[in-house]
């Protein structure tokens, strides 16, 4: 394994640890969005405040919303992966041509 590969694995492991730790340490939370928590604060600061605009398309429920978020991540990841695949293959076959 190259030095870079080792660093990459170590970094990704660290990412997972940081993401999972709160789940293990905090049990009495649903880990709702920070934007929802901000809404509560606004209501606390100014109880008369009414949101004056609504989202044009609001997903009917959590399932549809997670579908759309998955699509976003999936689309992004496929484009990103395609790009990386292209770059990796380019390097690989360039070497073969040189030999």
């Amino acid at each position: 394994m190259t030095k870079n590969a080792k660093i990459v694995i170590a970094l990704l492991f660290l990412v997972v640890v940081i993401a999972v730790t709160p789940l293990l340490l905090i049990h009495d939370s649903e880990f709702g969005g920070a934007d929802g928590a901000a809404e509560e604060i606004i209501t606390a600061i100014n109880p008369n405040y009414v949101a004056w605009a609504d989202p044009i398309l609001e997903p009917p429920g959590g399932e549809t919303e997670s579908l759309l978020f998955c699509l976003q991540a999936g689309l992004g990841a496929s484009v990103f992966g395609f790009g990386f695949g292209y770059l990796v293959a380019r390097k690989k076959y360039k070497k073969k041509d040189d030999n």
Partner: peptide, 11 residues
Amino acid sequence: ALKIPSVTGSS
């Protein structure tokens, strides 16, 4: 797109 849990109990 990745909502990640954090130490405050929010994501």
